[in-house]
């Protein structure tokens, strides 16, 4: 390779690299927050986000500059979450253990001592536990559809497009997810006095 073409390849490589860095900077918050909403865990979200961008890095030449890169990222984040959930479930079944990952909470979460009435804080902590436990009863697909609809406010049609499934399937997954959450939270609704008599 001549010195001139070697220089041009190097320059091109630097271009792609800085281009990709900008791509990560533009999308990292969206990918991480989606992964966090899906998994409910910072360490899992961190792993998923890194895997997603690594995949994006490997295929970057295919979608560089395309407007649909955001949609594509959305899809691979969801797939990475489903894949991870299955692997976790499989590992837990096989070895009775969870996949533990690391996330430096003290460094990244600006953790301050929460202020307020201790009773309120306990109630908030209890609610958090109840919500996450209820979400854990959903299948990965039900959870994805529920999160995209309820927390990301996507329309059923958009969810269907992101997941490459029919709108009817999305509707049915959403309905089953809500029914399952309803069952999982029955006792807690009662505790909160939200349960009406039939």
């Amino acid at each position: 390779m001549s010195e001139e073409s070697a220089t041009s390849v190097k320059a091109n490589s630097r271009d792609v690299e800085s281009d990709f860095r900008r791509f990560v900077e533009e999308n990292r918050r969206m990918v991480f927050m989606l992964a966090l909403d899906l998994s409910g865990d910072h360490a899992d979200a961190d792993d998923i986000a890194q895997d997603v961008f690594l995949k994006a890095f490997l295929s970057y030449d295919k979608f560089r500059g395309e407007a649909k890169a955001g949609t594509w990222l959305y899809r691979i984040t969801v797939n990475a979450f489903i894949d991870r959930s299955r692997r976790k479930a499989h590992m837990a079944l096989k070895h009775g253990e969870r996949i533990e990952t690391e996330f430096d909470h003290a460094r990244y979460l600006n953790s301050r001592r929460p202020e307020g009435d201790p009773e309120d804080l306990t109630a908030a902590a209890e609610m958090k536990v109840q919500i996450e436990s209820a979400l854990d009863t959903l299948s990965p697909q039900q959870r994805v559809v529920f999160v995209l609809r309820h927390y990301k406010h996507l329309a059923l049609k958009e969810i269907a497009e992101h997941l490459s499934i029919s709108e009817g399937t999305v509707k049915s997954l959403l309905f089953r997810a809500i029914q399952r959450l309803r069952e999982a939270l029955a006792h807690y609704r009662n505790e909160l006095g939200l349960e009406e008599s039939a």
Binding site: E17, L36, N110, I178
Partner: peptide, 29 residues
Amino acid sequence: TLDIMNQREMAAPNDQYFTDLTENVMRRG
């Protein structure tokens, strides 16, 4: 049930996290 689910709050990490995430991704890539 949905009202309860609305109470879910996920704390976003600080800017340092996102800077580190970018560096990790670039290094791994």
